[in-house]
Computed example of a mutant assay.
Amino acid sequence: MDSIIFDLDGTIWDSIDTVLLAWNSIVEENKQVEKKLTRRDFEGTMGLQMDDISSKLFPNLDLNTRTQIIKQCFEIEGKYIEEHGGALFENVEDVLHNLSKKYKLFIVSNCQQGYIEGFFRYHKLENYFLDYENPSRTGLTKGDNIKLIIERNNLSKPVYVGDTESDLKASRHAGIPFVYAKYGFGNVSEYDQVIEKFDDLLDLF
């Protein structure tokens, strides 16, 4: 193994409370939406891309309306992330510091542009990661973005760490081992390795 590619939400941190602030500031301005979004609403969207998130959160709205609202939410989300950050899982920085001495570290997440950048700026963790990618920048699926990171950085034996079934599928699509972050937001049908907490990575690798 020469590298570790991470999912972000549910794997490195929990940003749901901050994202709720951002999205509900948009929801309150749209009379078509009957109620504020809740943490439970968001937990069911982890790992999904924009179209799937919009249909899940706003199922009663027509496609054009929910697409417009979701775009507004994503546009403001990065600003809130940069200003408020999120809740890092326990010992994240210490673990990243130690892992980065042995492995190349990367992030591939199904987020919008500005989200990973906001994470870096608020928590000052950018020095641990050599590269990152997301679908809003490339137009690719998570699996293809993992492949892109592998190709762009000439990786030979990477693994992917994530917490949802879509993370598993992306890993399989990219043809690399999947490490399941069991403490995260989702459940998976299979995995190659499992961690109960973030610092279990130090024992695993």
Rank of each mutant, 00 (worst) to 15 (best):
N98C: 08
L99K: 02
L130T: 14
I116V: 15
L88Q: 05
E82P: 03
Q113Y: 05
F119H: 02
E90Q: 12
D131I: 07
L140Y: 05
L140G: 01
T138V: 10
T138D: 01
N134R: 01
L96E: 07
E133T: 07
L130S: 14
E90K: 13
G118P: 06
E83W: 08
G139F: 04
C111P: 05
E93A: 07
E126L: 13
Y128C: 10
L105C: 12
T138Q: 01
S100Y: 08
Y115S: 05
D94G: 05
Y128P: 06
Q112R: 10
E126K: 06
I116A: 03
E82L: 12
G78E: 01
E126G: 13
C111F: 09
S109M: 04
G86D: 10
L140K: 08
H84V: 00
V92P: 02
Q112W: 08
E93I: 11
D131S: 12
G86Y: 06
E133K: 01
N110Q: 04
H84A: 04
F119C: 09
L99N: 02
S136W: 01
L125E: 11
F129H: 05
L130M: 13
N110H: 03
K102I: 05
F129D: 06
G85E: 14
D94R: 01
Y128R: 00
E133P: 00
S100M: 07
E133H: 03
K101T: 09
I116W: 02
L99P: 02
C111I: 14
K101N: 12
S136A: 11
N91M: 08
F119M: 13
N110M: 03
A87G: 00
S136Q: 08
V92L: 13
R137N: 06
E83M: 13
Y103C: 10
T138Y: 05
K124T: 12
P135Q: 02
G78T: 03
K104D: 14
I116H: 02
H97I: 04
F120Q: 02
K104R: 14
Q112I: 05
L130R: 10
K102R: 12
Y128D: 11
L140C: 09
L125W: 07
R121N: 15
Y128S: 08
G114T: 04
E77L: 12
R137D: 04
L96M: 14
V92Y: 06
K79H: 14
L96I: 11
F119S: 04
Y103K: 14
L96N: 03
Y128A: 09
Y115L: 11
L130P: 00
G86A: 13
A87E: 15
L125H: 03
L125Y: 07
H123L: 13
F89P: 01
G118Y: 06
I81G: 06
G118Q: 05
H123G: 08
E83Y: 10
R121K: 15
G139I: 04
L99G: 04
Q112M: 09
I107T: 07
Y128I: 09
G114I: 03
H84E: 12
G78D: 01
L130V: 15
I107R: 00
I81K: 12
K104H: 11
N98I: 07
F129G: 07
L96T: 06
Y122I: 06
N91Y: 11
G85Q: 12
N98M: 11
H84Y: 15
H97C: 10
S100C: 12
L105P: 02
A87Y: 13
L88E: 06
Y103M: 10
S136I: 02
Y80L: 09
F120N: 02
G114P: 04
